[in-house]
Design a protein around this nucleic acid. Structure first.
Lengths: 333, 333
DNA sequence: ATGAAAGCGCTAACAC
DNA sequence: GTGTTAGCGCTTTCAT
């Protein structure tokens, strides 16, 4: 049978409230009884039930993490940082993958509440505004990572996507490229929207005409990227450079280029986004815009936990600077 | 204020047990009251507290997943499958990364119990036999994935590492290679041990002499692999082929080879292990031994949950066949 | 400094 | 078919 606070109390010859006090380090207890209780706890291998204590109103010390897919390197790296920082602060993370499916997401949002998590970090492209609004209204601790919903007053930690896009496209322009394409996901993802805005702005600032068909919408996976790139690279006029809004898409472009016998960077320059592990192992190494994943992970957790612990009730947007990492996939014309 | 079963009961004009019955679909209730209760539940946005129900002895419907690092593609893919299958069966997963640190692992093992998870899946190289034994003795649901502890009667789902190693090295031998090196992690990881045994056996079966220095122990990361490979490839006699026990190590070898001006597969053949996403995006694509990750993920979860639900109390080892995926990193001499 | 007791939200006998 | 009630293991007043 599981050993409970009663067992400890009985064995130590004190009441359960005394035991509770030494567990939580509250109230005053004589050094002597504290020592005795501690001793018995150890002896009995007593482990306080977090479930029971949660029922009395205390925290579960668990946070939910809703992301599209942990198997995606960008999110797996985020998940890792979130868990690390959570652990440092005494919180566990319940991992939820939704593939950006709104139903799955809504299900999780509800489930996580039933499980009494103390807060939720969301990295998916939510469209569940009503649910979010409701949570916000209830003052339920919430934070967005690598995503934004400008219409909501909500905690956000993300990279400056506009700036990142600006750096990426400017880099290509500075190399003399004029025919530049952009590949991106869904515009409902704000990050993509900002990156596209940056693309348009850089092109216009430099007086470069761009075809609407150079703006390629696709899905997030490598295969999607490859398929779309295959089409793009066989169209005409053919771009000499591509800004892919995720590393995975960029690698899809690599594969398409290879299939078409195009050399990177000689025939085609490519800039990615995210700086995941993928970008370092492809050949040639991918020039990409780095998101400060470690910093982002740490900051969302801090933001969320501050709110959970009532230390900071004002919502904030933390927008971190990206960094263009120039490797060998880009070359001047 | 949070709405409880009492609120629903009052509003519906029934007792809490009736409400409980409709929630859990137990006992008999008239269609009429059931409908009424359901209606009120919806109206009040009632969400049963899993915490409270767990306190009464029911499951938390949460399982713990202890792995070295989700940011490692192999484990992130496992994590994804585990979560998927868990969701299908109504379970959430609490993610724990330990970097194979025994202290972290022990901490988690204890914490997960405090949080009353229903079972734990372990993918780390545990040395905490005492803790495991204790859990086993308490009949706490446990399962190992991609790992084995032969000394324990415990649920295990893993690939046949010996066979995988056998396939990998045989493949190299069949291509005419005689000077074959192996790179692996720590022998305390059984998978490495079996793969090494296979290496030795294949070499001996084919009458091939191998240097002890061709057996390279290193850490799991790409950089570790690169460093070790750099040394290996500059030693003499130099191997013409390398069997790297993880894809990440294999890619370290790629990078070392590149730095030394060696062409793969012309100057050096490489076989990896795992068939993670990494193996498909490197150039040339990596020949590797595939672990059936999807199947493994599904099976551990099934095994664990069967035990949780008392459907199957006999421990089993499920050893799945690997599959050699021949790509372009190996070539006949 | 310590104990008694109420209550957290729910389940599961047990009664009717 | 439905209600009453005693816990589950803990925290937290309120006494003493």
């Amino acid at each position: 049978m599981k050993v409970t606070i009663y067992d400890v109390a009985k064995q130590a010859g004190v009441s359960i409230s005394t035991v509770s006090r030494v567990i939580n380090n509250t109230g005053r207890i004589s050094e002597k009884t504290r020592k005795k209780v501690l001793e018995v706890m150890k002896e009995l291998h007593y482990q306080p039930s977090i479930v029971a204590s949660a029922l009395t109103g205390k925290r579960t010390r668990t946070i939910g993490l809703i992301i599209p897919d942990v198997a995606n390197p960008f999110f797996s790296e985020i998940a890792r940082k979130v868990e690390d920082r959570g652990r440092e602060l005494g919180f566990n993370v319940l991992m939820c993958n939704t593939d950006n499916n709104p139903d799955t997401e809504e299900m999780y949002l509800s489930l996580l509440q039933q499980k009494s998590v103390d807060g939720i970090i969301i990295g998916t492209t939510t469209k569940n505004y009503t649910v979010l609004n409701q949570l916000l209204q209830e003052n339920f601790p919430l934070a967005l990572i690598a995503q934004d919903i400008p219409e909501l007053a909500i905690n956000v930690v993300r990279v400056d996507d506009f700036l990142g896009g600006y750096q990426a496209v400017s880099h290509l322009v500075s190399l003399g490229h004029e025919k530049i394409a952009i590949m991106l996901g869904n515009l409902s993802r704000t990050s993509d929207k900002y990156r596209l805005q940056a693309y348009r702005q850089v092109m216009e600032e430099n007086g470069l005409r761009y075809e609407e068909k150079w703006i390629v919408y696709t899905d997030y996976s490598l295969t999607d990227g490859k398929r779309a790139a295959l089409e793009l690279l066989q169209s005409s006029p053919k771009p000499t450079a591509v800004f892919a809004c995720f590393d995975s898409l960029a690698i899809g472009v690599y594969q398409a280029a290879k299939e078409l016998g195009l050399n990177i960077p000689n025939d085609l320059s490519i800039v990615g986004f995210d700086n995941t592990i993928l970008s370092t192992i492809v050949d040639p190494p991918l020039t990409t815009v780095a998101q400060p994943i470690d910093e982002m992970g740490r900051q969302v957790v801090d933001l969320l936990i501050d709110e959970i612990e009532g230390k900071n009730s004002t919502k904030q947007r933390i927008i971190l600077p990206p960094e263009l990492i120039i490797r060998q996939s880009t070359k001047s014309l």
